[in-house]
């Protein structure tokens, strides 16, 4: 099969790393060759972050080229717009309907446009807007927004056949397993 590319983007601290880790473990269990690339370091501090996941029969580069992502899952609205140029023209976007203010907006040097979602929809045909942060809050743990989004990702890439429950149980701290399983289920129902 041709290599698939999934880009998870967001703001440092939103949990993209755990979501992509679980994703790659599931893909490996399923027998795919998998590579993932992240940039750590300074960008953790509230900066724009990305996890790039590629899978298929044989994956060479761990890095997704502009114009080659099959799916972008964005944990924050502005980040979806920022990374949209990485999407294939036929690709899909799952975007969390959530705003985090960048420092130039906080400082009053720039505005956070109110119509970001509309702009994404104008540029791309296949956009699913999810309220992952709200759904996670409703479940009682806002931090599980990343697993809600993982659920949406799994559905969007038709990866439901993988035993995600086992992957989560084996890789998440016992106290959080139940919350995360609930979040996964909710996420899968949103796409």
């Amino acid at each position: 099969m041709e290599t698939k590319s999934v880009l998870l983007v967001g703001v440092g601290g939103q949990g993209t790393i755990l979501a992509s880790k679980l994703l790659t473990l599931g893909l490996m269990e399923e027998g795919y060759d998998v590579k993932m690339s992240e940039i750590h370091g300074m960008s953790q501090r509230g900066g724009s972050v990305s996890s790039q996941v590629r899978y298929g029969d044989k994956v060479w580069s761990p890095v997704i080229e502009k114009g080659s992502a099959d799916l972008i899952v964005s944990f924050e609205k502005m980040e979806a717009l920022r990374w949209l140029e990485y999407l294939k023209p036929s690709g899909k976007v799952v975007v969390n309907n959530h705003e985090m203010m960048p420092m130039p907006v906080i400082m009053g040097q720039a505005d956070y446009a109110a119509d970001i979602i509309d702009q994404i929809k104008k540029a791309c045909k296949d956009v699913t807007v999810v309220n992952a942060t709200d759904e996670a809050m409703k479940l009682g743990n806002g931090k599980t927004q990343n697993i809600v989004l993982l659920g949406a990702l799994i559905k969007a890439m038709s990866l439901e056949g993988i035993n995600w429950e086992a992957i989560i149980k084996a890789n998440v701290k016992p106290n959080f397993v139940e919350d995360n399983l609930k979040a996964l289920k909710v996420g899968m129902s949103l796409v």
Partner: peptide
């Protein structure tokens, strides 16, 4: 790979064109 592709073939992969004017930088803080 995108850099190599562009240097060797002069081309990049086709991607979506859209307005970037409302994208605000998100520097680390």
């Amino acid at each position: 790979s995108d850099v190599i592709r562009k240097c060797v073939t002069g081309k990049v992969l086709e991607s979506i064109e859209y307005d970037h004017k409302d994208i605000v930088n998100r520097p680390p803080a």
